[in-house]
Design a protein around this nucleic acid. Structure first.
Lengths: 330, 330
DNA sequence: TGCGCATTGTGTAACGCTACACAGATATCA
DNA sequence: TGATATCTGTGTAGCGTTACACAATGCGCA
């Protein structure tokens, strides 16, 4: 900038004003500055220096638990991101995806990223990244939990929604089962009965499991007898394998409460015609296959998280869910 | 940092070393520094100042043409992003999604974003954002074009692939048609015959259209007679409407060369049983519906773009496509 | 005992920018 | 004509950090 100023025969401040408050500078000086800048290949104020001086980066950080790329494999996460992106675009904020999932360095990354605030995609209770984000004194908004002092949580009441969905799918069932997301960071695939929700590390999974148990208990079903298939991801192939395993253990299964539409569909495909099924998220496949499902707008929740992270009031979306009843439970 | 140094009774440099080269500092000093930092709520070196001093941000920028959120609506763009994200995560780079699509400010954003290099998702020839990115002297890698001096282009040879796909779908057809992506930034939906590929602003669309024309010409088909339906997005509902319009104009259509699997499927649904169809991308729906399609890995291409943007050699992927023949053209 | 070497701490000098306060020139008005 | 407002340009003083060079200390070894 000093060089440009010299070449243009003005002071550095004039150059600065040329870029930041052009009307503050005479047309003549402005032209001289821009000419000099072009000749010298100066593209405008350096972003880092500007942020340093300004005291803010005008960038929002998004932390996606697990490996970064999972985010893009999960259509729900993508919808959420779209909502966040929308708000960022509207406000002129950049959106920085913070790389995590590499282990011990995660903490450093979260601390060292040039962002003003964080939106954290739902993670485990013990996620060190979450603690790190909060420790940096930036505003932190977490989607769906875990709840912590100093962080805002936005997301639906998964337990209440699961209870409603469970009531719907388990009604009249004699051999109910559950298809669940992972219960801890190890992300193992297995089948077991009566998993205690309290032992689950992911708040979303925990709440949904608790809601399904609530529904079972309401109907007089013995939770400890309910087989639960845990899938590593919201993926078809694996879910079908887990469903087969469930059917091995309990061939009489006649109702499956799944935590995702894909899981629900996989269940349906493995035991067509004799199953009541609910899914989650009301995605395209749920509509295509007439699946009863818990509808929620991840996109709106993403937008709300971003809005809150940027310091404006936003709805917490606790009640932004709706049980969509379709053929799969009738 | 100065405050921490004072509180710990050491120099600022010792504090700096504590964070950046802990082993350079005695265990005793380190402990004093960390204690003081905790007491004062100091979370570590300021990222902006660090970038300023260091001269690089260790962040990769991604520019997605059109409105930012489109990126997340297009599954292909998401796959591409996943590839970019993967490389960033591996290298410890942040991934900054630059907001564009807001008009004149786009340029400013691209110039002012704190990134070391850019990956640009394919856009129009005249996109000012592309020029802006290059003007900032950062390394710029563009996916699929437009090609420009000073930028690297990575992507498949869309024309050659379209020619192969066109040859497959048009073979023996008497009334071929095309379902195309938008031809310019206005993104209008319409039907017209014999659109000149040279008039198309998006390189990807242009090349695919040119390839389809090549195939038509090879088979002795008069291109000016081939009706082309232009869809605004790779979306089902709209594509079906355009397909109906095509059938109005030319009821005898017996072959449709589409530019996306969704478009192909929409065509098939509007005229079931009597259509040869090809799609593009070999997505899940193509496999589900036995659609002939041009397979390519957007994910790998995203990774290659990121690698190249970070300064390492990467394959250009020109030949990373493959015509997958299925029932829809037999 | 003296020499080189490793270890640990410190001061200096930027990195590139802009808020602020001020100065000079010109225009406006009673 | 003098007082006042407006426009335009400039210098100062950091924003928070770290590369580098140097100083002080202690240690091993001939």
């Amino acid at each position: 900038m000093t060089d440009v100023a010299r070449a243009a025969g003005v002071s550095p401040m004039t150059v600065s004003y040329t870029y930041n408050q052009p009307q503050r500078v005479s047309a003549e000086s402005r032209a001289k500055v821009l000419d000099a800048a072009r000749d010298l290949g100066y593209a405008g104020p350096d972003p880092s220096a500007r942020s340093l001086r300004y005291g803010a980066t005008r960038t929002l950080g998004v932390v996606l638990g697990e490996h970064l790329t999972y985010a893009f494999d999960d259509p729900q996460a993508v919808l959420f991101l779209a909502g966040v992106a929308e708000v960022c675009a509207d406000r002129g904020y950049g959106l920085l995806i913070v790389p995590t999932g590499t282990g011990e360095e995660d903490r450093d990354w979260v601390v060292a990223a040039a962002v003003d605030a964080y939106v954290v995609w739902t993670t485990t209770d013990d996620d060190p990244v979450l603690a790190a984000a909060r420790d940096t004194r930036r505003r932190v908004v977490v989607h769906s939990g875990p709840a912590r002092p100093g962080t805002t949580v936005i997301g639906i009441d998964n337990r209440a929604a699961a209870r409603a969905a469970g009531a719907e799918v388990f009604a009249g069932a004699r051999h109910p089962a559950v298809l669940s997301f992972p219960v801890d960071r190890r992300r193992e695939t297995f089948v077991r009965s009566g998993i205690d929700p309290a032992s689950v590390a992911y708040p979303v999974t925990r709440d949904r499991l608790a809601g399904y148990r609530d529904a079972a208990v309401d109907l007089g079903i013995d939770w400890s007898e309910v087989p639960i298939g845990v899938c590593r991801t919201n993926d078809d192939g694996e879910a079908r394998a887990v469903m087969r395993e469930l059917l091995d253990v309990a061939p009489g299964i006649d109702a499956v409460a799944a935590m995702g539409d894909r899981l629900a569909l996989a269940a349906l495909r493995e035991a067509p015609g004799r199953l009541r099924v609910v899914g989650w998220d009301d995605s395209e496949i749920a509509r295509d296959h007439d699946l009863t499902t818990v509808a929620q707008s991840l996109r709106e929740q993403g937008a709300a998280c971003a809005t809150a992270a940027l310091g404006d009031p936003a709805p917490d979306h606790r009640d932004s869910w709706r049980l969509v009843r379709r053929a799969s439970t009738s």
